[in-house]
Measured scan of single mutants.
Amino acid sequence: DHIPWITAVLPTVIICVMVFCLILWKW
């Protein structure tokens, strides 16, 4: 059976995008 890697990667991607947007917003 396949491991849904997207389910494991998606939260990390969302957190990175939120942090990236927060850094851009504070500049």
Rank of each mutant, 00 (worst) to 15 (best):
D1V: 02
D1F: 13
D1R: 07
D1S: 11
D1Q: 12
D1A: 10
D1I: 07
D1M: 07
D1G: 07
H2L: 12
H2T: 04
H2C: 15
H2I: 09
H2Q: 05
H2R: 04
H2M: 15
I3W: 06
I3Q: 11
I3F: 03
I3A: 09
I3P: 11
I3C: 14
P4R: 06
P4S: 07
P4C: 09
P4K: 08
P4W: 08
P4Y: 03
W5T: 03
W5F: 12
W5V: 05
W5H: 03
W5G: 06
W5N: 09
W5E: 06
W5L: 00
W5Q: 14
W5Y: 05
W5D: 13
W5R: 11
I6Q: 05
I6H: 04
I6N: 10
I6T: 09
I6K: 07
I6P: 10
I6V: 08
I6R: 04
I6F: 10
I6A: 11
T7H: 05
T7E: 14
T7W: 01
T7C: 09
T7I: 08
T7F: 01
T7Y: 00
T7N: 09
A8H: 13
A8Y: 10
A8S: 02
A8F: 10
A8V: 15
A8I: 13
A8N: 15
A8E: 15
A8R: 13
A8K: 12
A8G: 04
A8T: 08
V9H: 14
V9I: 04
V9A: 10
V9Y: 01
L10H: 00
L10A: 04
L10K: 13
L10E: 15
L10N: 15
L10D: 15
L10S: 11
L10V: 10
L10I: 03
L10Q: 13
P11Q: 03
P11T: 00
P11E: 10
P11F: 00
P11V: 00
P11I: 00
P11K: 07
P11G: 00
P11W: 10
P11D: 00
P11M: 00
T12Y: 10
T12V: 01
T12W: 01
T12H: 12
T12E: 02
T12C: 01
T12P: 02
T12R: 04
T12G: 01
V13S: 09
V13E: 12
V13K: 13
V13N: 07
V13W: 07
V13I: 10
V13C: 12
V13D: 02
V13Y: 01
V13F: 01
I14H: 02
I14Y: 09
I14V: 07
I14K: 04
I14D: 14
I14C: 02
I14L: 01
I14G: 00
I14S: 00
I14T: 10
I14W: 01
I15T: 07
I15Q: 15
I15N: 13
I15P: 06
I15R: 01
I15D: 13
I15V: 14
I15A: 08
I15K: 04
C16P: 00
C16W: 02
C16I: 00
C16L: 03
C16Q: 12
C16H: 15
C16D: 14
C16Y: 04
V17R: 09
V17G: 05
V17N: 15
V17H: 14
V17A: 08
V17D: 06
V17Y: 05
V17T: 06
V17M: 03
V17P: 00
V17I: 06
M18G: 00
M18A: 00
M18V: 02
M18N: 13
M18L: 05
M18R: 01
M18K: 03
M18S: 00
M18T: 01
M18I: 00
V19G: 07
V19F: 05
V19P: 09
V19R: 11
V19H: 14
V19I: 08
V19M: 15
V19K: 13
V19Y: 04
V19E: 01
V19L: 11
V19A: 11
F20G: 07
F20C: 02
F20A: 09
F20N: 14
F20S: 02
F20L: 05
F20P: 01
F20H: 02
C21E: 12
C21D: 14
C21T: 10
C21V: 15
C21F: 05
C21Q: 14
C21K: 12
C21I: 11
C21P: 12
C21R: 08
L22Q: 06
L22C: 08
L22R: 12
L22F: 08
L22V: 04
L22G: 10
L22H: 14
L22Y: 13
L22E: 06
L22N: 08
L22D: 09
I23L: 03
I23E: 10
I23P: 12
I23R: 08
I23Y: 10
I23V: 07
I23K: 15
I23T: 08
I23G: 04
I23M: 02
I23S: 04
L24M: 00
L24T: 11
L24V: 09
L24P: 06
L24W: 04
L24Q: 09
L24C: 14
L24S: 06
L24R: 10
L24A: 07
W25T: 08
W25C: 01
W25K: 11
W25F: 04
W25S: 01
K26M: 06
K26I: 01
K26G: 02
K26N: 02
K26S: 07
K26Q: 13
K26V: 12
K26D: 12
K26R: 06
W27M: 09
W27L: 08
W27H: 05
W27K: 05
W27S: 08
